[in-house]
Amino acid sequence: MSAYLKEYLSAKEQPETFWKAQAQQIDWFKFPKTILSIDDNGIERWFSDGVMNTCWLALDYHCQQGRGDHTALIYDSPVTGKKQRYSYNALRDSVARVAGMLADQGVTKGDRVIIYMPMIPQAAMAMLACARLGAIHSVVFGGFAPNELAVRIEDAEPKVIITASCGIEVNKVISYKPMVDKAIMDSRWKPEKVVVYQRPECLADLNHARDVDWSSLLQHAIPSACVPVLATDPLYILYTSGTTGKPKGVVRDNGGHAVALKYSMHTIYRQPQEGVFWAASDVGWVVGHSYIIYAPLIHGCTTILYEGKPVRTPDPGAFWRVCQEYKVDTLFSAPTAFRAIKKEDPNGELLKQYDLSQLSTIFMAGERLDPPTLEWVESHTDKPVIDH
């Protein structure tokens, strides 16, 4: 607590000094001279004259530092039976080619790209490729219906939409392409291209006047370098749920985002760089943006992209299986996930089958953590639970 208070008071009483020190922990193309400024609308701008690239921080920097062979991303998909590992070198090379693919479709710095994809590595690659080009991604949760997607298309006005042919929910295949087609038809804004990643579980029919195949484009793509951007240039737009009116697009800039995420991995999560961090969320949510993709990769550790559920893929031991198999240090998810596990395995019998000795801390966020769920997780895992 004394360490926390020291950090808190330092940030509160000397914010520019404090955040300048944190900014020095990331690799800038041009370190900012101005730490904090106030624009004409009274809005704080952090590191306004700093030049950087978020994809560089997440991938290229680690490769340059000789850590390219370290595992960057683990894809675990119990719904398809697939598992893949990507080193920092391999992920950088893939993302550079995806960025080249998007550049070939006319995507440049400042353009918007909507990503409507399931939890597959190509979703992460698409996000990082946009960051690499200085384009602004808007990830739309794959479970959203066409009307919800249409509203976001109208607002973001994307040059390109990136999607997959389908998503998989436990034992059900959901075709994405018809929903994308309906959303575009219902939207006043029409994207120039729709890039479709074909999954073998369900192949999409392409409209050849507008749709292009991911794999075909990738064969001819020339890898793109990282485009320098200002710290205050947007990285992404993420929309609110719209349950209380029209969804509102929250714009996150590059610099403050990267500095804060790097800081959080050290001080909040205490994540070892050689370890494994697992945010059991979805890239369609802000937790997925920040703690599946950007924070772990900027930190230089291994992150897990999990295409499955806490239960029924195949059972309530799914989370514990992943933690044991990949020696997860930090698990971050929503209380709802643990309530589902508790409901189907109230005595924690499946949990007893797995070795969780590597797991140090469980973090929960996204909603209220009710006392019964907290007590169940603490008592059955014997791990500290931090409620965000």
Rank of each mutant, 00 (worst) to 15 (best):
residue 312 R to V: 02
residue 312 R to I: 01
residue 313 T to D: 15
residue 313 T to F: 14
residue 314 P to K: 14
residue 316 P to T: 06
residue 316 P to G: 06
residue 319 F to P: 03
residue 320 W to H: 02
residue 321 R to P: 02
residue 321 R to T: 07
residue 322 V to Q: 00
residue 322 V to S: 00
residue 323 C to T: 09
residue 323 C to Q: 10
residue 324 Q to I: 04
residue 324 Q to F: 09
residue 324 Q to E: 15
residue 325 E to M: 09
residue 325 E to K: 14
residue 325 E to Y: 02
residue 325 E to G: 04
residue 325 E to I: 01
residue 326 Y to E: 12
residue 326 Y to K: 02
residue 327 K to M: 05
residue 327 K to Y: 06
residue 328 V to P: 02
residue 328 V to E: 04
residue 329 D to P: 05
residue 330 T to D: 07
residue 330 T to S: 07
residue 330 T to C: 11
residue 331 L to S: 02
residue 332 F to R: 00
residue 333 S to P: 03
residue 333 S to W: 02
residue 334 A to V: 09
residue 334 A to S: 14
residue 334 A to W: 04
residue 335 P to G: 03
residue 336 T to W: 12
residue 337 A to P: 04
residue 339 R to Q: 11
residue 339 R to I: 13
residue 340 A to G: 05
residue 341 I to F: 05
residue 341 I to G: 05
residue 342 K to H: 15
residue 342 K to P: 08
residue 343 K to F: 03
residue 343 K to C: 09
residue 344 E to V: 03
residue 344 E to P: 01
residue 344 E to W: 09
residue 344 E to Y: 12
residue 344 E to D: 15
residue 345 D to H: 06
residue 345 D to K: 02
residue 347 N to Q: 15
residue 348 G to I: 11
residue 348 G to N: 11
residue 349 E to V: 12
residue 350 L to A: 00
residue 352 K to F: 03
residue 352 K to N: 13
residue 353 Q to R: 13
residue 354 Y to E: 12
residue 354 Y to V: 04
residue 354 Y to S: 08
residue 355 D to G: 01
residue 356 L to P: 04
